[in-house]
């Protein structure tokens, strides 16, 4: 039982009209782990999460969550999960406390228990001071915390968070990361979606990279990063001639090119020795590179490394052939 995955999908497919949004998604999430579904806009993250939370039926394939089929045993699944959608879902004209008590009552708690639970969650999510204010007056970070708190009234086994930190400032994001870590520490399975590699890296034991409705890579953060080297060295070349020479020298190793800014990016592990040896190799005469920066690999870099093309937003994708 313990090593049976708590979320398992096989060959999930879903189309809207002629657009194939999911083209066979296979996922396995271990109980008590944090799993990140990483992908650019339109990759199908929300659609996958909606299937897992029983709100959408897949056209093909199946999904099991907490031991139950998301189509056949919808009701059993709903009792064991919580969904925090990508967009704020609670009533702006109700206070934080009213929203949580309502969710508790809908989940099936008694009036009294719902009140106690709302109090506990407001305390835990640092919202006690704002409990009696309308949710519409909350900041983005507070709204997000309230949304997640609302999902926890029933102590779910599996928590589904769709882009929990999109639109949050760095501090609120940090708070959210701590909350997710706490949930996992308490034994809850968390499946979250994100567009940020850094976030998946920080939080998740395993990551699935979703692109145009397919899982293109799947593994631990370390696995993925080994394939993209984790960081990128960006070189600003001295002039167009130097840019041309260096671009030719690097060939396919240049994972990032911006000719108008004379910028080339190469993967690195970020260590001083690796950066030094890269600079020596690329610019032995010490006149081609004007400046350099090292930064975390972004989703774009992972994409380029794993799919050989830039992470085009799938929202601009052509409909699949009729």
């Amino acid at each position: 039982m313990a090593d049976e995955p708590v979320v398992e999908t096989t060959g999930l497919e879903k189309s809207y009209g002629r657009v194939k949004v999911l083209a066979g998604v296979d996922l396995r999430v271990a109980r008590g782990s944090v799993f990140a579904l990483l992908g650019p806009n339109g990759a199908g993250k929300t659609t996958t999460v909606r299937i897992l939370s029983t709100l959408v039926r897949p056209d093909a394939g199946r999904a099991r969550v907490a031991g139950f089929d998301t189509v056949r045993d919808r009701r059993e699944v709903r009792r064991r999960i919580s969904l925090t959608g990508q967009y704020a879902a609670l009533d702006e004209q109700q206070t934080g406390e009213e929203n949580l008590r309502m969710m508790g009552r809908l989940y099936g708690l008694t009036r009294r228990r719902a009140r106690e639970r709302a109090g506990e969650l407001l305390e835990r999510f640092d919202l006690a001071g704002a409990a009696r204010r309308r949710a519409g007056t909350y900041s983005g970070g507070m709204r997000r915390r309230l949304d997640i708190a609302a999902g926890l009234v029933g102590d779910p086994e599996v928590v589904l968070l769709d882009e929990p930190t999109t639109g949050l400032d760095p501090r609120s994001r940090q708070t959210m990361w701590e909350l997710v870590a706490d949930l996992a520490a308490a034994g809850t399975t968390v499946l979250l979606t994100t567009q940020y590699l850094e976030e998946a890296d920080r939080l998740a034991g395993r990551i699935a990279l979703l692109d145009a409705g397919r899982v293109v890579a799947d593994g631990t953060a370390a696995d993925l990063k080994r394939r993209v080297a984790g960081r990128r060295l960006d070189l600003t070349l001295a002039d167009a001639a130097a840019y041309g020479r260096t671009a030719e020298l690097l060939g396919g190793r240049a994972v990032h090119r911006q000719p108008d800014r004379l910028l080339l990016g190469v993967p690195t592990d970020g260590s001083a020795s690796h950066v030094r040896s890269l600079l020596e190799e690329i610019d032995p005469e010490r006149d081609a590179v004007a400046r350099f920066t090292v930064h975390e690999a972004t989703l774009d870099d992972v994409f380029l490394a794993l799919t050989g093309r830039a992470a085009a937003s799938a929202d601009r994708r052509e409909p699949a052939g009729a």
Partner: peptide, 12 residues
């Protein structure tokens, strides 16, 4: 709004 998803996931 997303609220209807929220309710449905609670079996409302």
């Amino acid at each position: 709004e997303g609220v209807v998803d929220c309710f449905r996931s609670l079996d409302v």
